[in-house]
Simulated assay, not measured.
Amino acid sequence: MEEKVTSQDDCSLTSENRQKLLGMKERTLQDLWQKQKAMEPLAVKYRTMESELLHWGKNIKNHTKEK
């Protein structure tokens, strides 16, 4: 009978561990989503700046040399 209790306790602990892991995973996904949202405006700004530097087919080195 003690083995059954131990087995049931193990199942409940496993369930508790699963819940903890799922919670941690959800928090991690939320953090990543927030970081991605924060990076979007920076990426747009970077692409805009890059396109300005690469205007007329010039690369950054040549553009810098000309100025």
Score class of each variant (00 low, 15 high):
residue 1 M to P: 05
residue 1 M to Q: 11
residue 1 M to E: 09
residue 2 E to P: 04
residue 2 E to A: 13
residue 2 E to K: 15
residue 2 E to G: 05
residue 4 K to R: 15
residue 4 K to T: 14
residue 5 V to I: 13
residue 5 V to E: 09
residue 5 V to K: 15
residue 6 T to K: 09
residue 6 T to P: 01
residue 7 S to D: 15
residue 7 S to T: 08
residue 8 Q to K: 14
residue 8 Q to R: 11
residue 8 Q to D: 09
residue 8 Q to M: 08
residue 9 D to N: 12
residue 9 D to G: 08
residue 10 D to H: 09
residue 10 D to Q: 13
residue 10 D to S: 08
residue 10 D to A: 15
residue 11 C to E: 14
residue 11 C to L: 15
residue 12 S to M: 10
residue 13 L to G: 12
residue 14 T to C: 07
residue 15 S to P: 04
residue 15 S to L: 09
residue 15 S to A: 11
residue 16 E to I: 05
residue 17 N to T: 04
residue 17 N to Q: 10
residue 18 R to H: 14
residue 19 Q to M: 14
residue 19 Q to C: 12
residue 19 Q to L: 13
residue 19 Q to T: 07
residue 20 K to W: 11
residue 21 L to Y: 05
residue 22 L to I: 03
residue 23 G to R: 06
residue 23 G to K: 01
residue 23 G to M: 00
residue 24 M to G: 09
residue 24 M to T: 10
residue 24 M to E: 15
residue 24 M to K: 15
residue 25 K to V: 07
residue 25 K to G: 02
residue 26 E to Y: 08
residue 26 E to P: 02
residue 26 E to R: 13
residue 27 R to P: 03
residue 27 R to I: 04
residue 27 R to S: 11
residue 28 T to M: 15
residue 28 T to H: 12
residue 29 L to K: 14
residue 29 L to N: 14
residue 30 Q to C: 04
residue 30 Q to S: 08
residue 31 D to V: 04
residue 32 L to I: 06
residue 32 L to R: 05
residue 34 Q to Y: 07
residue 35 K to C: 07
residue 36 Q to N: 13
residue 37 K to W: 07
residue 38 A to I: 01
residue 38 A to Y: 05
residue 38 A to R: 10
residue 38 A to K: 12
residue 38 A to V: 02
residue 40 E to C: 06
residue 40 E to I: 05
residue 40 E to N: 10
residue 41 P to V: 00
residue 41 P to I: 00
residue 41 P to H: 02
residue 41 P to R: 02
residue 42 L to S: 10
residue 42 L to P: 03
residue 43 A to Y: 09
residue 43 A to L: 14
residue 44 V to H: 03
residue 44 V to R: 05
residue 46 Y to P: 01
residue 46 Y to C: 10
residue 47 R to W: 11
residue 47 R to A: 06
residue 48 T to A: 09
residue 49 M to R: 12
residue 49 M to P: 03
residue 50 E to G: 00
residue 51 S to R: 14
residue 51 S to D: 12
residue 52 E to C: 03
residue 52 E to N: 07
residue 54 L to H: 06
residue 57 G to V: 00
residue 57 G to T: 01
residue 58 K to G: 01
residue 59 N to H: 02
residue 59 N to T: 03
residue 60 I to G: 00
residue 60 I to Q: 02
residue 61 K to P: 00
residue 61 K to D: 01
residue 61 K to W: 04
residue 63 H to L: 01
residue 64 T to E: 05
residue 64 T to A: 07
residue 65 K to M: 04
residue 67 K to P: 00
